[in-house]
Nucleic acid binder design. Sequence first.
RNA 1: GGACAGGUGGCUGAGCGGUCAAAAGCAGCAGACUGUAAAUCUGCCGGCCCUUGCGGUCUACGGAGGUUCGAAUCCUCCCCUGUCCA
Length: 404
Amino acid sequence: MSTELRFEILSRDSGTRARAGLLHTAHGTIETPCFMPVGTAGSVKGITQEQLERLGAQIILGNTYHLYLRPGHEVIREMGGLHRFMSWPHPILTDSGGYQVMSLKGLGRVTEDGVQFRSHLDGSAHFLSPERAVEIQMALGPDIMMTLDECVEYPASTETMHRAMKLTSRWARRAKEAWKKERASGVGGRVSENPNSDLGAGNSTGVPASLPTPGSRHPVLFGIVQGGMDMNLRRESAEEIMEIGFEGYAIGGLSVGEPKAETYDVAEHTAGLLPADHPRYLMGVGTPEDLLEGVKRGIDMFDCVMPTRNARNGSVFTSQGKLVIKNARFARDPLPLDPACECEVCRRYSRAYIRHLFLAREMLGATLATLHNLYFYLDTMRKIRQAILSGGFEKYYSRVRAGP
RNA sequence: GGACAGGUGGCUGAGCGGUCAAAAGCAGCAGACUGUAAAUCUGCCGGCCCUUGCGGUCUACGGAGGUUCGAAUCCUCCCCUGUCCA
């Protein structure tokens, strides 16, 4: 079987590590660097799949832990996989539940074998192992799946970071074995999509035309580098993960509360260790500035809940910086969220109206803010990519860094 | 006209002799949010003053008097509101 994932680098910036490329997956091609909106429970909160397409989202995230608990991965398998279930015929990446090891730490216990945890929904006991995470993700049927890792909180002792990093490596090996086994067993546990499904034709604006690679529906597996803020641990982790070998490499455990400078230093150091011909994914990052800084350091993929969560909480990203739309100063402001923005929200609605929706707790407020924020992120990424392709990344970088 | 019930900070509403500038909720104001237990959470919310604190001070619980060392809390009268009876 040929590689299920093909990563094509189109252009490299001469002065930095920035690069622009194409990531070919079973459900279409993703232009990199890319930002992936987070749709944890099979939904990018507050907006529809049509709206995601119009925004130009090329790939979204789903979450193993959440979808396993509800509605259950078997339900999703029976419904033809996550793409069909949620009617998103474009690329999907599923996270393994590794982040939940940290965020739900009060509900779980990490052992060599995996994570024992209690459901945050009903308290029931569950077990997630590297093999189980692969198995569940096979049922979900994404294009890219992640190994189970252990993500630790920021102030962590070297000992803790070391232990979590080593465990992540051992889990990565087991995940790879499980993944190989699944692949060898052919259609085995995996999703077979109905080729006659009428859901596949919904490719509208913003999504580049691409040919799904026939016969390679098996999700590819990305490994995750851990090691906290310790450069030596990062190196050791990267070596071990690369030794196992994955289709793509993620940098996990950043933006967990550490100072920005450290985030960037560790990302730069780690990205520099990873193979140039594979996609590099900085997990859970970040702010619009973080994206730019990440790209500069050689990152190809990002995901973050920030644009969607902040939107629901009433704060929006603009070319002039962050704006808390609930503030009283916008009560009579007829301007759009960002006068420089061309999104459908900014072309039509005023700050005063959106503020009103938030104060009145109208759900449309959250939707409009989400649409705008995601547009801002995706558009930021488009501009960065264009700058790389045209050889003007550094100029673009200095201009943006200089501020509005 | 009479009988009850009641008037507390923007609203609802607790408090019924001191620890009350006054619970709680709402509203309001501000902030946070990075692989989503989040349409959530945190702080402020009478005025003035010292950036400080279990801080000082002034004005405050319908109005006016009174009892008391001390009153949102007790007494008297008045005003107002609601319900019922005439």
